[in-house]
């Protein structure tokens, strides 16, 4: 049985990571064509990536969009989660459903419909439009983590704070926020990663005038493959890995996944 488990998990790791290893290897290929194992290995495509303004601009756009949309999404999620935590009413449950709706719609359907909204607001083809689209898409993620964090607060802690004469504002700032902070940070980081990677909403709202890195990679493929594409992909992988490692190191990974460790 142990052998079967070992074989199946080895197979899984090969399945999941072989494509990534090929991308990593091809990013170090010397000549312009794609090859694995890399021929005449060099880091020239990395220097090429960071010295080409079309690539660095699209990376910068992705970072700006991801930072703003994950921050806004976390604020909206926090407000929604706190309202439901304070009072489990029909209205507050409707808020939870409404802010989560964009995440649950089929991707293309939400992308098309939010592009219509941004067009009517005059935001099509602007960073603000993509930030709005990503914020809407991502709120569901920090909402889940914020609610997990709020579930850690016991009623007795709130009662004790009240007995000590804390005002509602003090309970919020000195008890609730410190307890749920790691959950909010993790939610914000998860949404940051997803925003950096998101293509469909960004493509529909970009109006062909703004390129994020996924849009740039997608568009560049039409002109043939070159190792800069692999470099872009690896930059993203490294970015996601650093953020995920931070979440894992925070010690909250298991409870964020809803797992109680023994």
């Amino acid at each position: 049985m142990k052998l079967a488990r070992l074989l199946s998990l080895t197979g899984l790791s090969i399945f999941l990571y072989t494509p990534i290893i090929v991308v990593l290897g091809s990013s170090f290929n010397g000549p312009r064509q794609m090859a694995f194992p890399p021929q005449d290995p060099s880091i020239s495509w990395y220097t090429n990536f960071f010295s080409d303004t079309s690539w660095t601009t699209s990376l910068f756009n992705s970072i700006v969009i991801a930072v703003f949309s994950s921050t806004f999404a976390t604020v909206i999620a926090l407000v929604t989660a706190l309202l439901l935590w304070q009072k489990d009413s029909k209205l507050h449950q409707t808020f939870v459903g409404a802010v989560s709706l964009p995440f649950l719609l089929p991707g293309i359907v939400f992308a098309v419909s939010i592009s219509l909204v941004t067009a009517s607001l005059g935001l099509l083809g602007s960073l603000v439009g993509i930030i709005l689209g990503h914020t809407a898409l991502l709120v569901a993620i920090p909402l889940v983590t914020a609610r997990l964090g709020l579930a850690q607060i016991e009623q007795i802690q709130v009662e004790a704070a009240k007995l000590m004469g804390y005002s509602d504002r003090q309970i919020l700032t000195k008890l609730v926020i410190p307890i749920i902070r790691p959950y909010l940070v993790a939610g914000a980081l998860f949404s940051l990663i997803i925003s950096m990677n998101e293509y469909i909403v960004a493509f529909m709202v970009s109006g062909f005038s703004i390129e994020t890195l996924p849009i740039k990679i997608y568009n560049s493929q039409r002109y043939g493959f070159e190792p800069t594409l692999s470099v872009g992909t690896m930059v993203y992988m490294m970015f996601s890995l650093v953020l995920l490692s931070y979440i894992a190191a925070s010690g909250k990974l298991w409870s964020l996944l809803g797992i109680k460790e023994s």
Partner: peptide, 8 residues
């Protein structure tokens, strides 16, 4: 691995 988007 799930952090890789559709495009990547």
């Amino acid at each position: 691995s799930l952090a890789l988007s559709e495009v990547l």
